[in-house]
């Protein structure tokens, strides 16, 4: 697509754990360091809606009282895209259609619905690539991850995860795909027994039809 891609070695974390965990000052410091690191790129493409949402919606809030940094945060917000959003905006086209015949359940994720509003981009990309994708019932309900929530309220988090996988299984889906890494980590950890579904990040499914090497 004619872009030059960098993966800065010094990137660490968007600061969301601290931000959501009451460590506001720390989150501000992390945000400032990421803002510096990402200052010179035309686009910042993030393969997880939750982290993208942190850049887009929450950095400006977090740094609202500091004119200099607030401006930097707004600037980054304008340049940040969730991966599927970016690919769609850049009119990505698959090089070939997939030969993967599996039915996929698309876990839309709360962040891609409500933070980046890009869940339909993910779906459109997968459809364009020839995948069979469907949204499970209650797609707008959380899968139970929520970062530290999963650790603090483990059983509740697992229950929500099971409900999500059950809804996916009810579609007779053979795999789950999402644009959010946190949800995938969580869903993979609670999958098992009758809910044995492999989970994929959208990039893993787009790579093989983009001329990439690996097939999941």
């Amino acid at each position: 697509m004619g872009h030059r891609l960098s993966v800065p070695r010094d990137q660490t974390c968007c600061g969301q754990p601290g931000y959501n965990g009451g460590h506001r000052q720390q989150a501000r410091a992390v945000a400032r360091s990421q803002l510096q690191l990402l200052a010179d790129f035309d686009f910042v493409v993030v393969p997880s809606a939750s982290c993208a949402g942190m850049f887009i919606n929450h950095y400006p809030l977090l740094l609202a009282d500091d004119p200099h940094w607030h401006e930097a945060a707004l600037d980054l917000a304008g340049r940040t895209r969730e991966l599927s959003q970016f690919l769609r905006q850049q009119q990505w086209q698959p090089q070939r259609r997939t030969s993967d015949p599996r039915r996929l359940a698309h876990h839309t994720s709360c962040a891609s619905r409500r933070e980046t509003r890009s869940h339909s981009d993910t779906r459109q990309l997968l459809l364009a690539a020839g995948y069979q994708v469907e949204e499970p019932a209650n797609a707008e309900i959380c899968c139970g991850f929520g970062g530290s929530f999963a650790a603090k309220f483990d059983r509740l988090s697992q229950r929500l995860g099971h409900q999500k996988l059950d809804a996916c299984a009810a579609l007779a889906a053979e795999a789950v795909v999402s644009a959010d890494l946190g949800c995938l980590l969580h869903l993979e950890s609670v999958a098992g027994g009758p809910r044995q579904l492999p989970v994929y990040h959208v990039a893993e499914l787009l790579a093989p039809v983009s001329g990439g090497r690996r097939t999941p």
Binding site: R9, D10, Q11, T12, C13, G15, P17, G18, G21, G22, H23, R24, Q26, A27, A29, V30, S33, S148
Partner: peptide, 25 residues
């Protein structure tokens, strides 16, 4: 809660370390 030190000690410390690491690539 954090300002009033009401969160569990383990969380407080863990997040503190994580935050420090996030600023030291």
């Amino acid at each position: 809660q954090h300002e009033q030190q009401l969160e569990p000690q383990g969380w407080r410390r863990g997040l503190g370390i994580y935050g420090w690491l996030s600023r030291h690539p």
